[in-house]
Amino acid sequence: MHVGLEHYLVVSALLFCLGLLGVVLRRNLLVIYMALELMLNAANLALVAFSRFNGHLDGQVMVFFIITVAAAEVAVGLALIVALYRKRQTARVEDLTTMKL
């Protein structure tokens, strides 16, 4: 069967759902963050596939921006995690329940 747009979209959707599963199920803050990266990458794959099969380059420019923003986001997020760890000595989401009602 010839590989078309649908194949790439299915891979992208499955990867996104894997990332979502990680965010929902894992309890370690860093692993949750990695799962978030997975979801961003799934979105990137979908954008590149659309850009290739529709003949516009805009999707790839968008992916370029997403990669840059993701890098900045990772830096800030990891700094937040480190600051949190200094205060609480934990990186588990179960122990971070200050804002719980």
Binding site: M34, V48, A49, R52, A71, L78
Partner: peptide, 23 residues
């Protein structure tokens, strides 16, 4: 495979090179 060669290079450089090292 999607002929996005530049993005493939950027992907490896930025993610595997910078983000993972940060992690």
């Amino acid at each position: 495979l999607l002929h996005a060669f530049f993005l493939a290079a950027v992907q490896i450089l930025v993610y595997a090179g910078a983000v993972i090292v940060l992690f």
